[in-house]
Design a protein around this nucleic acid. Structure first.
Length: 446
RNA sequence: GUGGCUGUAGCUCAGUUGGUUAGAGCACCAGAUUGUGGAUCUGGGGGUCGCCGGUUCAAGUCCGGUCAGCCACCCCA
């Protein structure tokens, strides 16, 4: 029995186990996202983890192809594990839009895989909570996307967050004007680093990778470096894109979106026009979003997305523009943990039932059933250990109420209800227990 | 993928120029208190010093490799 060959238990780099203390808040995040998405009429969908490799390659850019987990399956097919949820959604929509019709509003909460180097809040396996609107170019969809992000972070009770928005058309318009349109990916990528490496280095990179002249780089940077209130930035953008049709359209959309969002009741401070936000993925065409936590901007965007009007054309002749965003569940959770906003509750059931009088097993089980029938979760301790030890366990695991019943209580058809936070206990008739517990839980919400 | 830092008990960490049987706090288990937790005291269990190899009479300590974590680049949720 002791001479078996033991295998070291371990997990792959970037892949993690999830213990109850993190899985409980994780599920809460998922449930909250689900609730908010549904409240806007988004319907759940799911797609396979594996796709034909050709579906996944070349849609997000060179870099994403490098990070893709791919292999040959047992049938000799080249397959890849989904890298995000947007590309599979585009395939899904192309395949099923005939049946589902448009506009198609869907949410998708699932795991994705990227074979890149790990860091805090960056894993090789992580969960995204996407919601998307397909089949409409209307600005309403862009507006709603911001509203959903806003409602989501409000529902998550996150006090400080900022949704940064931009529109790629603004910059692309300028690049058309310079005949640099085909280099827009390289330009945007360089621009995205503005906050980190500064204007001089960005200009140098633009020259090197996109062949932009110093004057052109300067004009682009001038646009990206704008700061001030949303209105000031919009006014400045307006001047910079004067005479450029596409750029003007982009600025107009930004303005229209912002005013609609404010009209819908969003505090304008939550939404900031940020001309340097461009997103690294190649498929975005218009509006783009990134959401940062004010207290932990360094961890990066926790909810990003944008408009991708051409993505589905790779799979279908039908026009299928889309817009959506993705909550980075695992990154957000890592951030909340670091900010001390994750409560260390280790039990999903609020009530603890001590096993005390061995001869009354059936009575304990009946009592537990009655409490559960009232919609309250109960954990029954499996062993008739010393009461003190059981209460200690209940305390450590974060139960709110302990139910204690021994020989004396059973003899009188009663039980003791103990509020574990205050230490106060009351004795009630067995029949009243579920109701009284409900009141106790209501009186001291977790 | 590249570079830097780190890796000793479940957790946070000590460990002297290499030198007996590797320690502490917290956590865990038992008891003091045979029906009442979060306090105190006493006792107890738990360590292939990440892993593999090398140098040495001797390696937790030095060297190489490897795996993992963190940081930067890159990119991104």
């Amino acid at each position: 029995m002791n001479d078996v060959q033991r295998i070291e238990p371990r997990t792959l780099k970037g892949f993690r186990d999830h213990l109850p203390e993190t899985m409980i808040p994780r599920e809460w995040l998922i449930e909250t996202a689900r609730r908010v998405y549904r409240s806007y009429g988004f319907a759940p969908i799911d797609t396979p983890a594996l796709e034909y490799l050709e579906i996944l390659t070349g849609k997000g850019g060179e870099e994403t192809d490098k990070q893709l987990y791919k292999f040959e399956d047992h049938g000799g097919r080249w397959v890849g594990m989904r890298f995000d949820l947007t590309v599979p959604l585009a395939r899904f929509a192309a395949q099923h839009v005939g049946k589902l019709g448009t506009p198609l509003k869907a949410y998708h909460i699932a795991t994705v895989w990227r074979g890149e180097n790990t860091q805090r809040g960056r894993y090789r396996e992580f969960m995204q909570c996407d919601f998307d609107t397909l089949g409409t170019l209307a600005i309403t969809a862009d507006v709603e996307t911001v509203l959903v992000i806003h409602d989501l972070f409000e529902a998550l009770r996150i006090p400080g967050f900022t949704i940064r928005v931009n529109n790629r058309q603004v910059l692309n318009g300028l690049l058309d004007h310079f005949d640099l349109a085909d280099k827009s990916v390289a330009i945007l990528r360089a621009l995205d680093k503005l906050d980190k490496i500064g204007a001089d280095k960005v200009a140098a990179e633009m020259h090197q990778t996109a062949g932009a002249t110093a004057d052109q780089a300067g004009r682009v940077l001038q646009l990206a470096e704008l700061h001030g209130s949303n209105q000031e930035i919009l006014a400045a953008l307006d001047r910079l894109v004067a005479g450029n049709e596409k750029g003007q359209a982009g600025v107009a959309k930004l303005a229209e979106m912002l005013s609609a969002v404010v009209a819908a009741g969003v505090d304008e401070g939550r939404v900031r026009i940020s001309p340097s936000i461009t997103r690294g993925l190649d498929y975005y065409t218009g509006t783009v979003f990134e959401t940062f936590l004010d207290d932990l901007p360094g961890i990066g965007s926790v909810c990003s997305g944008g408009r991708y009007d051409n993505l589905a054309e790779l799979y279908s002749k039908q026009e299928l523009p889309g817009i959506g965003a993705s909550l980075g569940l695992d990154r957000l959770l890592a951030a909340l943990e670091e900010l001390g906003m994750v409560e260390k509750v280790q039990t999903p059931a609020p009530v603890f039932l001590a096993y005390f009088d061995v001869s009354r097993l059936h009575d304990y089980l009946r009592l537990a059933t009655a409490i559960r029938a009232a919609g309250i979760g109960v954990e029954f301790y499996p062993e008739p250990k010393k009461l003190g030890a059981q209460l200690k366990y209940a305390d450590r695991r974060g139960f709110r109420v302990a139910v204690v019943a021994g020989e004396n209580e059973w003899a009188q058809d009663q039980c003791q209800l103990k509020d574990l936070a205050s230490g106060q206990s009351t004795t009630v008739p067995l029949d009243d227990a579920p109701g009284t517990i409900a009141e106790l839980l209501k009186a001291s919400p977790a």
